[in-house]
Structure formats: structure tokens, C-alpha cells
């Protein structure tokens, strides 16, 4: 049957492209990913990685390790992540205040009575 077999649907990488890349020597998951771009789209490999690893192993490549998964696991908006920054600032202020307090206390102890 003719037609495209999609190895990675988010980035439109075909099985043919994948096999071509393996034939060119990209025969481990990481270099195969870097060359074809599979697994770099919206789903970050959730739907394509297993299929690509299976194809690679069948072609005699090294599929022992996946590419490195990195956060966020699931798409998240910058508006959501902004809360982490606000929280960090607060923590920094807290620790700066703690440091100030500690210093004041220390100064107090050293001060001649």
C-alpha cells in the first residue's frame, strides 16, 4: 500500500525519513532525534518514541536508551510558570531578611555591653 507512514505526527517525520537517517549512520535514538526532529514536537515523544525505537532496533541500531526527557512533561503556559518566579522572589526576600536578622543578632551579641 502506498502513502506516508508517520513516525512522528507532531513534526511530520515519515517512516521513510527515519529509515533514511538510520542508513546515513544516525543509529542511536539521540542522533536519530537530532537529525530527523522526531520527538521534538507538541507531545515530546509520548506518541512516537516507542515506534521510532522499535524501527531503530529492527534496523540493528542502538535503542537501549531513550532521549533525555526534560521538564515540563506536559505543555504549560508561561502565565502558570510565572508563579514560580514570584515565589522565588518572595523566598529570596525572606532569605535576605533572615540573613539581615542573623547579622543584626550577631552584631548585637558582639556589641559591648
Amino acid at each position: 500500500m502506498k502513502g506516508k507512514i508517520l513516525a512522528c505526527r507532531c513534526e511530520d517525520v515519515t517512516l521513510h525519513e527515519l529509515e533514511d537517517a538510520i542508513a546515513r549512520g544516525h543509529d542511536d535514538i539521540e542522533s536519530l532525534k537530532r537529525y530527523t526532529g522526531f520527538g521534538t514536537g507538541w507531545c515530546q515523544g509520548k506518541s512516537c518514541l516507542a515506534l521510532c525505537a522499535r524501527v531503530l532496533a529492527a534496523k540493528g541500531g542502538d535503542a537501549s536508551l531513550p532521549f533525555t526527557p526534560r521538564p515540563p512533561y506536559h505543555p504549560v503556559s508561561l502565565a502558570h510558570l510565572a508563579a514560580l518566579v514570584a515565589d522565588d522572589d518572595e523566598e529570596n526576600e525572606d532569605s535576605a531578611r533572615d540573613a539581615r536578622d542573623a547579622r543584626d543578632e550577631h552584631d548585637g551579641e558582639d556589641a559591648p555591653t
Binding site: R9, D12, G41, W42, C43, K46, S47
Partner: peptide
């Protein structure tokens, strides 16, 4: 539509694991 070939896309996993 998909990014390169503009192939049509529809729901395929219903669990947040694809681009469909």
C-alpha cells in the same frame, strides 16, 4: 493541520498524549 505537510489532524488518544 500538521506543521509541515498540512495533513488533517483529529483526536487520536483522548488522554493528552498527542497533537490531534
Amino acid at each position: 493541520r500538521s506543521p509541515k505537510f498540512h495533513r488533517p489532524r483529529g483526536p487520536s488518544c483522548m488522554r493528552g498524549g498527542c497533537d490531534g
